[in-house]
Design a protein around this nucleic acid. Sequence first.
RNA 1: GCAGGGUUAGUGAAGCGGUCAAACACGUCAGACUGUAAAUCUGAUGGCAUAUGCCUUCGUAGGUUCGAAUCCUACACCCUGCA
Length: 315
Amino acid sequence: MSDLSEKTPKTPQTPQTPEPSDLPKLLVVTGETASGKTALGVELAKRLDGEVICADSATVRRGVDIGTAKPTAEERQEVPHHLLDVVEPCGDFTAAVFKRLANQAIDDISARGKLPIMVGGTGLYIDGVIYDFDFMPAGDRQAREELNRLNPSQLLDRIKRLRLDASGVDVRNKRRLIRLIETKGQKPTRQPLRGNTLLMGLKTPREEIEQRMIKRLDDMLEAGLEDEVRALADRYDWDCEALKGIGYAQWKDYFQGDQSLPETRSKIIRATFEYAKRQRTWFKRNKSIHWFHTPVNVEEVVDYATTFLNGQVPS
RNA sequence: GCAGGGUUAGUGAAGCGGUCAAACACGUCAGACUGUAAAUCUGAUGGCAUAUGCCUUCGUAGGUUCGAAUCCUACACCCUGCA
């Protein structure tokens, strides 16, 4: 279990559910990787007197800066950023912990009269907050490792023996099976979209976004990505969370001499494309997101957000 | 010029007379997703219908056969050895 989750209360800050209209106003900016979320978030924060909450499973981690396209020191100086660097490189972190921390940040920011703006591409993290996911109990570390040694059919046997209901669960996905055992079959719940929340997404034509991803990777390489990864690899094992991300894991064979630099680069590019595809699939089904096409007209976004902040429903 | 090896779907690569629209890998496309989510998993991938269906493919053109990606002949291109 992560020490983080021990320090934070298991229940939300506000025990009694407030009326939707009492919730602090929240802006959400999402989109696939390299779509320009970070820049837009900073811009909005400046215009609307806000602060940014990063909803990203990679940038929560210390030690990974270049490869995660973490907001720069300048950006962080211009606008306060929350939930960056909150875990050690190899520490545990989950969507449930994120949800708690994000809600704290939202309350904190709005209590100081500022506007919270959640920016990120980790769909599960965002949804956990805005749909108030009721995360099931965490699994025990050791028990999980033991379960992980079983194969899917062994896990299914155990599920049957425990008389757990496996309906609706992807029985070919080991993690889902393990999770089913850990939660003893409890079904998760979700609430309707959080009140006072405005969802905005950035959309870029495929060709263009892929070019941006490649360009961004080349910038990262120039900025010393290889050294950053090597430093981590020297200190930690390859199964350290920090080294499992895109732009990190792909260096393993290279450092062991089995892979050229161009091969490493194209592996990272491919992994990035695959990730973007998963993001697109995730966001596609959320009909509440209002999409802006890039290059975004910041005025247009500010107008849209302002309408919402004035208590009206933007169209 | 002579001798030998090769030419298979987007790529690499199996298949060497019927059970082949053709293994497998990669790539590509689509999807799922509630305490690992930059994770994990699934499906499709010649065309058209999309349930058991039909049509066009295995360098090109002919031939043998009830039947060919698989055998024969010629041609084209590529690689290797001898000239």
